[in-house]
């Protein structure tokens, strides 16, 4: 299945606003009936970590909102296996179900997207 929009999450959460503002865009695109795929790579895989408590550093815990993606018909959620491995993480560490992709699968999925925006 090819997606109209591919959103790349490349930054760790809370140190900057990239993750929160990418997620806002995903929800709006979903509301507009767009076919959206989310890609988590590099430090962006930390966006999906379970049990985040950013309120201790004065940030909003938007990671809870990832669970709402399915209600916006956003089901294409992809995580880079290499990025997980490099950081010692496993799919069980993630707060939502996501498809873990090898480099080849990753390239195919990204190439399928009509438009890419990176955060």
């Amino acid at each position: 299945m090819s997606a109209q929009f591919g959103l790349l999450f490349r930054s760790a959460p809370h140190g900057n606003a990239n993750g929160q503002e990418a997620l806002d865009l995903a929800l709006v695109a979903g509301t507009f009936g767009q076919d959206v795929a989310l890609f988590f790579l590099d430090d962006g895989v930390f966006q999906l970590m379970k049990d985040q408590h950013p309120e201790h550093i004065g940030r909003k815990n938007y990671s809870r909102t990832f669970a709402a993606l399915e209600f916006y018909d956003i089901n294409q959620i992809y995580v880079c296996q290499v990025s997980l491995n490099e950081r010692g993480l496993h799919s069980a560490d993630l707060c939502i179900e996501a498809e873990v992709l090898t480099s080849e699968q990753w390239q195919e999925k990204v190439a399928d997207c009509q438009h890419i925006l990176s955060f």
């Binding site: 865009l25 709006v28 509301t31 925006l117």
Partner: peptide, 18 residues
């Protein structure tokens, strides 16, 4: 504007460049 406007612009173009 709102993010919906971004979605509409992207729907209506050949290439998005960031």
């Amino acid at each position: 504007s709102g993010l919906g406007q971004l979605v509409e612009l992207c729907e209506d173009c050949d290439r998005v460049v960031q």
